[in-house]
Simulated scan of single mutants.
Amino acid sequence: MDITLAQCFIAVDHHDKALAFYRDVLGLEVRNDVAFEGMRWVTMGSPAQPGVDIVLEPPLADPNASAADREAMAGLLAKGHLRGVVFTTDDVDATFEHIRAAGAEVLQEPLDQPYGVRDCAFRDPAGNMLRFGRPRRKG
């Protein structure tokens, strides 16, 4: 059995701000942009991983959700309580400087973690935590 990742989802509260960050700062390509029942989904991905998509979706992508549920999800997103995404990069320090220079909120400067990676962390425009790392070289 061969299982691979096809898509992951990131909740965003403003697709155009998210696009400016994920496309213009991180360099992801836009693969699809779909509107449906007052909602929008933007599919993006790294040119180096054509088979893996990141879908930017509304905080609660359910047209039948109650107003209270939509408000609760929007509140969790605003507080940064929804799960984030971990990216790999060949140069953590250069990636950090590039993203910081673009004005992203820094959560953690580059750091050698005790579990064997060097990484850094930011918040995207919607408040999601994004980590950028690579395994530390041994020796």
Rank of each mutant, 00 (worst) to 15 (best):
78 A>Q: 14
130 L>W: 09
102 A>K: 00
123 R>A: 14
1 M>V: 11
135 P>W: 03
76 L>R: 13
114 P>K: 09
109 E>N: 06
130 L>K: 05
52 V>Y: 10
79 K>V: 01
11 A>C: 11
19 L>W: 06
89 T>D: 08
22 Y>P: 07
134 R>D: 01
98 H>I: 13
102 A>E: 00
56 L>S: 00
11 A>I: 01
62 D>L: 12
67 A>D: 10
136 R>M: 12
61 A>G: 12
86 V>T: 13
85 V>Y: 04
1 M>I: 10
33 D>C: 07
62 D>C: 07
41 W>T: 13
125 P>M: 07
70 R>P: 06
125 P>E: 07
55 V>M: 12
4 T>R: 15
105 E>G: 02
111 L>W: 10
105 E>T: 15
135 P>A: 08
87 F>Q: 03
105 E>R: 07
66 S>R: 00
20 A>I: 05
59 P>S: 04
131 R>H: 12
13 D>E: 13
80 G>A: 08
104 A>M: 02
33 D>S: 10
105 E>F: 04
56 L>N: 00
50 P>Q: 07
79 K>L: 09
114 P>I: 08
53 D>F: 14
90 D>L: 13
107 L>S: 05
65 A>H: 05
115 Y>S: 05
64 N>Y: 00
19 L>Q: 08
28 L>D: 11
55 V>F: 01
25 V>C: 03
98 H>W: 07
64 N>E: 12
24 D>I: 03
51 G>P: 11
139 G>F: 11
48 A>S: 15
87 F>K: 08
103 G>K: 05
106 V>T: 12
7 Q>C: 10
44 M>T: 15
119 D>Y: 09
71 E>H: 14
124 D>V: 06
49 Q>W: 10
38 G>N: 02
48 A>W: 06
24 D>F: 04
122 F>K: 04
131 R>A: 12
49 Q>Y: 13
129 M>N: 07
133 G>E: 09
2 D>A: 11
66 S>T: 10
48 A>I: 08
128 N>M: 07
47 P>R: 15
61 A>M: 13
129 M>K: 15
101 A>C: 06
73 M>W: 09
6 A>E: 15
58 P>S: 12
8 C>A: 14
58 P>D: 15
21 F>D: 01
91 D>F: 05
117 V>F: 14
18 A>Q: 05
121 A>P: 01
12 V>D: 03
108 Q>G: 07
94 A>Q: 08
89 T>Y: 11
85 V>R: 05
44 M>Q: 10
47 P>T: 15
55 V>E: 12
74 A>R: 13
27 G>V: 08
116 G>H: 06
12 V>N: 01
39 M>R: 14
44 M>K: 06
41 W>N: 06
19 L>N: 11
13 D>F: 00
50 P>C: 05
55 V>R: 10
134 R>E: 00
118 R>T: 01
118 R>F: 00
8 C>P: 07
139 G>M: 06
55 V>S: 10
39 M>E: 12
17 K>N: 15
114 P>W: 04
116 G>R: 08
17 K>I: 04
128 N>W: 02
